[in-house]
Design a binder for these strands. Structure first.
Lengths: 128, 128
DNA sequence: GTAAGATCTGACACTGACGTCAGAGGCACA
DNA sequence: TGTGCCTCTGACGTCAGTGTCAGATCTTAC
Protein backbone atom coordinates (compact mmCIF):
# COMPACT_ATOMS: atom_id res chain seq x y z
CA UNK A 1 0.00 0.00 0.00
CA UNK A 2 2.50 2.58 -1.12
CA UNK A 3 1.26 4.75 -3.95
CA UNK A 4 4.46 6.59 -4.45
CA UNK A 5 6.21 9.62 -3.13
CA UNK A 6 3.09 11.25 -1.73
CA UNK A 7 3.00 8.85 1.18
CA UNK A 8 4.11 10.33 4.44
CA UNK A 9 4.72 7.19 6.42
CA UNK A 10 5.30 3.64 5.44
CA UNK A 11 3.59 2.34 8.58
CA UNK A 12 0.25 0.69 8.29
CA UNK A 13 -2.53 3.12 7.50
CA UNK A 14 -6.25 2.65 7.81
CA UNK A 15 -9.27 3.58 5.81
CA UNK A 16 -12.15 5.65 7.03
CA UNK A 17 -14.28 2.78 8.25
CA UNK A 18 -11.60 1.47 10.54
CA UNK A 19 -10.82 4.89 11.94
CA UNK A 20 -14.50 5.38 12.62
CA UNK A 21 -14.61 2.09 14.45
CA UNK A 22 -11.51 2.75 16.52
CA UNK A 23 -12.50 6.29 17.40
CA UNK A 24 -16.12 5.42 18.04
CA UNK A 25 -17.66 7.86 15.60
CA UNK A 26 -19.48 7.53 12.30
CA UNK A 27 -17.88 7.66 8.89
CA UNK A 28 -20.07 10.64 8.14
CA UNK A 29 -18.68 12.49 11.14
CA UNK A 30 -15.12 11.97 9.92
CA UNK A 31 -15.92 13.37 6.50
CA UNK A 32 -17.62 16.26 8.21
CA UNK A 33 -14.54 16.95 10.34
CA UNK A 34 -12.41 17.02 7.23
CA UNK A 35 -14.87 19.37 5.54
CA UNK A 36 -14.56 21.64 8.59
CA UNK A 37 -10.79 21.54 8.46
CA UNK A 38 -10.38 19.64 11.70
CA UNK A 39 -8.91 16.48 10.27
CA UNK A 40 -6.77 15.73 7.25
CA UNK A 41 -6.19 12.55 5.33
CA UNK A 42 -3.90 11.11 2.76
CA UNK A 43 -5.68 10.22 -0.45
CA UNK A 44 -5.00 7.22 -2.59
CA UNK A 45 -4.93 7.70 -6.37
CA UNK A 46 -8.59 6.71 -6.37
CA UNK A 47 -9.37 9.32 -3.72
CA UNK A 48 -9.82 6.93 -0.86
CA UNK A 49 -8.92 8.47 2.50
CA UNK A 50 -6.10 6.92 4.51
CA UNK A 51 -5.19 7.76 8.06
CA UNK A 52 -2.32 7.04 10.42
CA UNK A 53 -2.82 5.80 13.97
CA UNK A 54 -2.48 9.39 15.24
CA UNK A 55 -5.86 10.19 13.80
CA UNK A 56 -7.60 8.10 16.44
CA UNK A 57 -6.45 10.38 19.24
CA UNK A 58 -7.14 13.42 17.19
CA UNK A 59 -10.71 12.39 16.57
CA UNK A 60 -11.20 11.64 20.24
CA UNK A 61 -9.91 15.09 21.08
CA UNK A 62 -12.29 16.65 18.61
CA UNK A 63 -15.14 14.77 20.25
CA UNK A 64 -14.01 15.93 23.67
CA UNK A 65 -13.95 19.53 22.54
CA UNK A 66 -17.38 19.22 20.95
CA UNK A 67 -18.71 17.67 24.13
CA UNK A 68 -17.27 20.62 26.00
CA UNK A 69 -19.55 22.88 24.01
CA UNK A 70 -17.09 24.20 21.45
CA UNK A 71 -18.28 24.49 17.89
CA UNK A 72 -16.35 23.67 14.72
CA UNK A 73 -14.80 27.10 14.44
CA UNK A 74 -13.54 27.09 18.02
CA UNK A 75 -12.12 23.62 17.59
CA UNK A 76 -10.48 24.64 14.32
CA UNK A 77 -8.95 27.66 16.03
CA UNK A 78 -7.39 25.81 18.93
CA UNK A 79 -6.36 22.57 17.27
CA UNK A 80 -3.05 23.97 15.97
CA UNK A 81 -1.81 24.67 19.51
CA UNK A 82 -3.06 21.33 20.74
CA UNK A 83 -0.95 19.77 18.01
CA UNK A 84 2.18 21.79 18.34
CA UNK A 85 2.16 22.78 21.97
CA UNK A 86 3.15 26.22 20.68
CA UNK A 87 0.85 29.16 21.13
CA UNK A 88 0.98 32.87 20.52
CA UNK A 89 -0.24 35.26 23.17
CA UNK A 90 -3.61 35.61 21.49
CA UNK A 91 -3.86 31.85 21.22
CA UNK A 92 -3.17 31.55 24.92
CA UNK A 93 -5.97 33.99 25.60
CA UNK A 94 -8.28 31.95 23.42
CA UNK A 95 -7.37 28.75 25.23
CA UNK A 96 -7.87 30.40 28.59
CA UNK A 97 -11.24 31.75 27.49
CA UNK A 98 -12.41 28.32 26.46
CA UNK A 99 -11.13 26.82 29.66
CA UNK A 100 -13.04 29.39 31.68
CA UNK A 101 -16.15 28.59 29.70
CA UNK A 102 -15.69 24.95 30.56
CA UNK A 103 -15.28 25.84 34.22
CA UNK A 104 -18.52 27.76 34.06
CA UNK A 105 -20.29 24.81 32.47
CA UNK A 106 -18.93 22.56 35.17
CA UNK A 107 -20.33 24.86 37.83
CA UNK A 108 -23.74 24.76 36.16
CA UNK A 109 -23.59 21.00 35.90
CA UNK A 110 -22.63 20.71 39.55
CA UNK A 111 -25.60 22.84 40.53
CA UNK A 112 -27.95 20.79 38.42
CA UNK A 113 -26.59 17.55 39.79
CA UNK A 114 -26.98 18.81 43.33
CA UNK A 115 -30.59 19.70 42.69
CA UNK A 116 -31.23 16.28 41.24
CA UNK A 117 -29.50 14.66 44.18
CA UNK A 118 -31.63 16.62 46.61
CA UNK A 119 -34.79 15.42 44.92
CA UNK A 120 -33.53 11.86 44.87
CA UNK A 121 -32.68 11.88 48.59
CA UNK A 122 -36.02 13.44 49.33
CA UNK A 123 -37.84 10.84 47.27
CA UNK A 124 -35.99 7.97 48.91
CA UNK A 125 -36.75 9.33 52.36
CA UNK A 126 -40.40 9.72 51.46
CA UNK A 127 -40.88 6.17 50.38
CA UNK A 128 -38.56 4.72 52.98
CA UNK B 1 -56.35 42.08 37.55
CA UNK B 2 -58.77 39.48 38.79
CA UNK B 3 -60.73 37.86 36.01
CA UNK B 4 -62.88 35.75 38.21
CA UNK B 5 -62.81 32.39 39.84
CA UNK B 6 -60.16 30.91 37.56
CA UNK B 7 -57.41 32.92 39.21
CA UNK B 8 -55.17 30.92 41.45
CA UNK B 9 -53.50 33.65 43.40
CA UNK B 10 -54.38 37.23 44.02
CA UNK B 11 -50.72 38.26 44.30
CA UNK B 12 -49.15 40.32 41.58
CA UNK B 13 -48.64 38.41 38.36
CA UNK B 14 -46.53 39.25 35.39
CA UNK B 15 -46.89 38.99 31.68
CA UNK B 16 -44.64 37.07 29.38
CA UNK B 17 -42.30 39.94 28.57
CA UNK B 18 -41.47 40.59 32.18
CA UNK B 19 -40.93 36.92 32.93
CA UNK B 20 -38.62 36.72 29.96
CA UNK B 21 -36.66 39.68 31.28
CA UNK B 22 -36.41 38.35 34.81
CA UNK B 23 -35.47 34.84 33.77
CA UNK B 24 -33.10 35.99 31.06
CA UNK B 25 -34.68 34.14 28.17
CA UNK B 26 -36.66 35.17 25.12
CA UNK B 27 -40.41 35.45 24.92
CA UNK B 28 -40.29 32.89 22.16
CA UNK B 29 -38.53 30.42 24.42
CA UNK B 30 -41.24 30.74 27.06
CA UNK B 31 -43.97 30.01 24.55
CA UNK B 32 -41.95 27.03 23.36
CA UNK B 33 -41.61 25.72 26.91
CA UNK B 34 -45.36 25.92 27.31
CA UNK B 35 -45.87 24.15 24.01
CA UNK B 36 -43.57 21.40 25.30
CA UNK B 37 -45.49 21.11 28.53
CA UNK B 38 -42.67 22.42 30.70
CA UNK B 39 -44.34 25.60 31.85
CA UNK B 40 -47.94 26.58 32.44
CA UNK B 41 -49.59 29.95 32.59
CA UNK B 42 -52.82 31.50 33.65
CA UNK B 43 -54.68 33.02 30.77
CA UNK B 44 -56.65 36.23 30.89
CA UNK B 45 -60.01 36.27 29.11
CA UNK B 46 -58.19 37.67 26.11
CA UNK B 47 -55.68 34.78 26.21
CA UNK B 48 -52.77 36.78 27.52
CA UNK B 49 -50.39 34.67 29.59
CA UNK B 50 -49.87 35.57 33.24
CA UNK B 51 -47.27 34.09 35.54
CA UNK B 52 -46.53 34.11 39.24
CA UNK B 53 -43.09 34.80 40.67
CA UNK B 54 -42.48 31.06 40.94
CA UNK B 55 -42.19 30.87 37.20
CA UNK B 56 -38.84 32.68 37.29
CA UNK B 57 -37.18 29.86 39.22
CA UNK B 58 -38.92 27.29 37.13
CA UNK B 59 -37.62 28.77 33.92
CA UNK B 60 -34.11 28.96 35.36
CA UNK B 61 -34.37 25.30 36.29
CA UNK B 62 -35.48 24.42 32.80
CA UNK B 63 -32.48 26.28 31.43
CA UNK B 64 -30.19 24.45 33.85
CA UNK B 65 -31.55 21.11 32.74
CA UNK B 66 -31.19 22.04 29.09
CA UNK B 67 -27.64 23.13 29.74
CA UNK B 68 -27.02 19.78 31.37
CA UNK B 69 -27.84 18.13 28.08
CA UNK B 70 -31.39 17.02 28.76
CA UNK B 71 -33.89 17.47 25.96
CA UNK B 72 -37.50 18.60 26.20
CA UNK B 73 -38.84 15.14 26.83
CA UNK B 74 -36.39 14.41 29.63
CA UNK B 75 -37.13 17.74 31.26
CA UNK B 76 -40.85 17.11 30.93
CA UNK B 77 -40.42 13.69 32.51
CA UNK B 78 -38.53 14.85 35.54
CA UNK B 79 -40.18 18.21 36.21
CA UNK B 80 -43.07 16.72 38.18
CA UNK B 81 -40.74 15.31 40.82
CA UNK B 82 -38.73 18.50 40.92
CA UNK B 83 -41.98 20.25 41.70
CA UNK B 84 -43.50 17.90 44.18
CA UNK B 85 -40.48 16.30 45.76
CA UNK B 86 -42.42 13.06 45.33
CA UNK B 87 -41.17 10.37 43.05
CA UNK B 88 -42.11 6.85 42.22
CA UNK B 89 -39.43 4.19 42.04
CA UNK B 90 -39.18 4.46 38.30
CA UNK B 91 -38.94 8.23 38.60
CA UNK B 92 -36.09 7.85 41.06
CA UNK B 93 -34.32 5.62 38.58
CA UNK B 94 -34.82 8.22 35.89
CA UNK B 95 -33.44 10.95 38.12
CA UNK B 96 -30.47 8.82 39.06
CA UNK B 97 -29.81 8.02 35.42
CA UNK B 98 -29.78 11.67 34.50
CA UNK B 99 -27.56 12.49 37.43
CA UNK B 100 -25.11 9.82 36.35
CA UNK B 101 -25.13 11.24 32.86
CA UNK B 102 -24.28 14.62 34.30
CA UNK B 103 -21.47 13.11 36.33
CA UNK B 104 -20.10 11.55 33.18
CA UNK B 105 -20.28 14.88 31.37
CA UNK B 106 -18.46 16.51 34.24
CA UNK B 107 -15.70 13.96 33.98
CA UNK B 108 -15.33 14.64 30.28
CA UNK B 109 -15.28 18.35 30.90
CA UNK B 110 -12.64 17.95 33.57
CA UNK B 111 -10.48 15.97 31.18
CA UNK B 112 -10.87 18.56 28.46
CA UNK B 113 -10.09 21.38 30.84
CA UNK B 114 -6.99 19.60 32.03
CA UNK B 115 -5.78 19.13 28.50
CA UNK B 116 -6.34 22.80 27.78
CA UNK B 117 -4.55 23.74 30.98
CA UNK B 118 -1.59 21.61 30.02
CA UNK B 119 -1.30 23.34 26.68
CA UNK B 120 -1.63 26.73 28.33
CA UNK B 121 1.11 26.00 30.87
CA UNK B 122 3.32 24.64 28.13
CA UNK B 123 2.73 27.71 26.01
CA UNK B 124 3.47 30.08 28.87
CA UNK B 125 6.65 28.21 29.69
CA UNK B 126 7.74 28.31 26.08
CA UNK B 127 7.40 32.04 25.75
CA UNK B 128 8.55 32.80 29.27
C1' DG C 1 -60.43 57.85 21.51
C1' DT C 2 -56.25 57.14 19.69
C1' DA C 3 -51.45 55.98 19.37
C1' DA C 4 -47.67 53.03 21.03
C1' DG C 5 -46.14 49.05 22.60
C1' DA C 6 -47.03 44.22 24.26
C1' DT C 7 -49.04 40.01 23.20
C1' DC C 8 -51.57 36.52 20.51
C1' DT C 9 -51.42 32.45 16.94
C1' DG C 10 -49.55 30.37 13.16
C1' DA C 11 -45.90 29.41 10.12
C1' DC C 12 -41.60 29.41 7.91
C1' DA C 13 -36.25 30.15 8.56
C1' DC C 14 -32.02 28.94 10.59
C1' DT C 15 -27.92 26.69 12.72
C1' DG C 16 -24.88 22.69 13.74
C1' DA C 17 -23.61 18.14 13.71
C1' DC C 18 -24.57 14.92 11.75
C1' DG C 19 -28.12 10.78 9.23
C1' DT C 20 -29.40 8.92 5.07
C1' DC C 21 -29.84 7.96 0.35
C1' DA C 22 -28.51 7.67 -4.67
C1' DG C 23 -25.47 6.50 -8.06
C1' DA C 24 -20.78 5.52 -9.24
C1' DG C 25 -16.56 3.55 -8.48
C1' DG C 26 -12.72 0.78 -5.68
C1' DC C 27 -10.85 -3.46 -3.34
C1' DA C 28 -10.38 -8.29 -2.13
C1' DC C 29 -11.32 -12.94 -2.66
C1' DA C 30 -12.88 -16.94 -5.26
C1' DT D 1 -15.19 -12.32 -13.68
C1' DG D 2 -18.36 -11.98 -10.58
C1' DT D 3 -19.79 -10.76 -5.95
C1' DG D 4 -19.93 -8.46 -1.78
C1' DC D 5 -18.42 -4.89 1.02
C1' DC D 6 -16.15 -0.25 1.37
C1' DT D 7 -15.72 4.25 -0.12
C1' DC D 8 -16.57 8.38 -2.97
C1' DT D 9 -19.33 12.96 -3.84
C1' DG D 10 -23.42 15.54 -3.61
C1' DA D 11 -27.53 16.63 -1.81
C1' DC D 12 -31.44 16.62 0.95
C1' DG D 13 -33.47 15.24 5.76
C1' DT D 14 -33.49 15.70 10.86
C1' DC D 15 -33.87 17.56 15.41
C1' DA D 16 -33.98 21.03 19.00
C1' DG D 17 -34.25 25.45 20.36
C1' DT D 18 -35.06 29.15 19.07
C1' DG D 19 -35.45 33.80 15.49
C1' DT D 20 -38.46 36.20 12.75
C1' DC D 21 -42.39 37.83 10.34
C1' DA D 22 -47.44 38.72 9.43
C1' DG D 23 -51.68 40.17 10.77
C1' DA D 24 -54.78 40.61 14.46
C1' DT D 25 -55.86 41.80 19.28
C1' DC D 26 -54.92 43.69 23.95
C1' DT D 27 -53.29 47.06 27.29
C1' DT D 28 -51.71 51.42 28.81
C1' DA D 29 -50.97 56.29 28.76
C1' DC D 30 -52.29 60.59 27.30
Amino acid sequence: MAWGHTMARTGEMMRIGELAGQAGVSVRALRYYEEQGLLTSERSPSDQRYYTEDAVDRVRLIQLLYAAGLNSKAVRDIMPCMDSGMASTSMLELLATERDRIDERMRELAETRDRLTTVIEQGRATRG
